[in-house]
Write a protein that binds this DNA or RNA. Structure first.
Lengths: 136, 136
DNA sequence: TGCTTACTCTACTAAATCTATAGGGATTAG
DNA sequence: CTAATCCCTATAGATTTAGTAGAGTAAGCA
């Protein structure tokens, strides 16, 4: 299940990408428009800024704005930042690999085999979409 | 992230499918072989029996056994029983549809569009795999 | 300078979910 | 009758998620 954090993050990114100019948009405006708790969105935007997707401006007339071209923001990166691993189990994760505590042998694990397929197909979807593809 | 419940359930199903005959196998044996808490596994096997994948025999010499041919057990069904919806958001779920509380219009929702793609690709993987494909 | 606006950051809390554990009941083989 | 084994319900601990609170910092403007 997709977390609210990810869902809200995606909506906020799309909203910012849909702005005509790259002028700062206030948190409150995004929160209002997308029906998101302002304080919650605040923390999400903060991580998106720290990751390098967004820039921010403080004080009057401040807000958040997109730094990059939407075409240069792949969904794989966004999802990993917001949601974490794309794989459903750590033992098939490319970026967050971890050995299973149960499971003596990965190669012979039935779950492993299946989850690799799921990972690859999901990766293909996220790999072929950028923020630009989510815009209206 | 895949829940332990699903992971254990898949392992147990595979283990039972790999048995030469269809004689009952005790919970303890499965739990031992797959490094699963016995009591936890018990509740998982119970739901798998209630769903119609497994049969059980009580008393001495009892246990669980596979009812159907592994080829006739599609992963879509197993996953829905163990893990729940395959879709990442309820608003794109085929079997567990629910409208988002935020989000006035699904058609124009950026997350919606992306999640439909993920759902379809995942569905294709689960749809093309049966329990037989997980066997050793 | 002083005031207002708006982002920054840390800490905390409430609720939900997941992962088990406990323990008695029911059934079957021998 | 007895031991083995599944059946079922309740509950508890740990973790994660979603949201809240509030003080701090920086920027614009008169």
């Amino acid at each position: 299940m997709l977390s609210k954090k990810t869902k809200y993050g995606l909506k906020a990114l799309t909203f910012l990408a849909n702005q005509k100019d790259r002028e700062p948009v206030q948190i409150a405006e995004i929160a209002n428009h997308e029906n998101i708790s302002q304080k919650f969105l605040e923390s999400i935007l903060l991580t998106l800024r720290k990751t390098g997707f967004l820039g921010s401006k403080k004080g009057k007339g401040g807000g958040y704005y997109l730094i990059k071209d939407p075409k240069d923001i792949p969904m794989t990166t966004v999802m990993r930042v917001l949601e974490g691993p794309i794989a459903l189990v750590p033992c098939v994760s490319l970026n967050f690999y971890e050995k299973c505590s149960d499971c003596p042998d990965e190669e012979s694990c039935s779950v492993h085999k299946l989850m690799i397929q799921v990972r690859d197909s999901t990766l293909e979807v996220f790999g072929s979409n950028t923020l630009a593809d989510l815009m209206s």
